[in-house]
Amino acid sequence: MEKPKIAFYWCASCGGCEESIVDLAEKILDVVNLVDIVFWPVALDFKIKDVETMPDKSVTVSFINGGIRLEEHEYVVKLLRKKSQLLVAYGACSSWGGVPGLANLFSREEILRCVYQETPTVDNLNNTRPKTKLNIEDIVTLELPEFLPRLLPIDLIVDVDYYVPGCPPTPEVTWKAIEILLSGNLPPKGSVIGASDRSLCYECHLNETKPEKVLIKEIKRPHEVIADPEKCLLTQGLVCLGPVTRGGCGALCVKAAMPCTGCFGQLDEVIDYGGKAISYFASILDYYNEEEVEKALSRLPDPMGTFYRYSLPASRLRGKIKIMER
């Protein structure tokens, strides 16, 4: 029997998701025994034109990591959708935009100006900006893909069959997801695979130390305190998003006394991760008038980066709204 064919592709991501596949360690050999990898730009020398020549639906599963930021990402992801039976959003960025998705608070012009002009370490006297086409003395034409106005999670441009959450997904989650996909016993389309269906608190080792009712007087940031590793981090004033975040990671960060930042994303039936997160977090602030609540919240300098760290492009509002000209 022919082995299933697997493709990997990266879009706007840091490379951590690629790393996480290698982190399967010796299990990667099992993967290689079970499947043929037909496209993996970061590790193997296949080109996009090789994918273009493949018959439609000939790839069993494509794993996409990273959000859509360049025209090329859009092209390749649509191409892989056509060539694959199953398409999996692998990691937080392709599922909801991830950290690069916070760029949706700025316009393309603001981003390019910041990167090519305003950054203190940049010396750009000619105001050079990247061009999509550059003709050098009629000898050669160089091309770069267009930088799109916004970063989008991949499910806004193609049909996504499954999601594997995490920043990056842990080796255990990745392995579980691969087992599910190769088992032939597939869950309903759109499912999150490899992770838990319950919130992180259910599997957190500190859950037993959480009192019946948690109330916070003073918000603390991780660099300001040495957290007690034996006590629920929320009760210590740290913004731990465990209660609204999908479990499955084994509370890795909490084991290192760092609060959960929410990289496994929302639970089923939540429509806006950040909205749910502020709903939960604000309600446990132990203050009863607006001034005091404001004062307590002033200890949280970046609410957007705290509550939408991995999911801004997938939020209801997608990013900063451009109000039409009046």
Binding site: L105, G274, G275, I278, S279, F281, A282, S283, L285, Y287, Y288, N289, E290, V293, E294, L297, P303, M304, F307, Y308, L317, G319, K320, I321, K322, I323
Partner: peptide, 21 residues
Amino acid sequence: NYKALRRMTLLRKLLESFGIE
């Protein structure tokens, strides 16, 4: 209503970042 007060105070900060007047 105290929970609403806390939530809406934090929400207001986010709406501002989203560019909603």
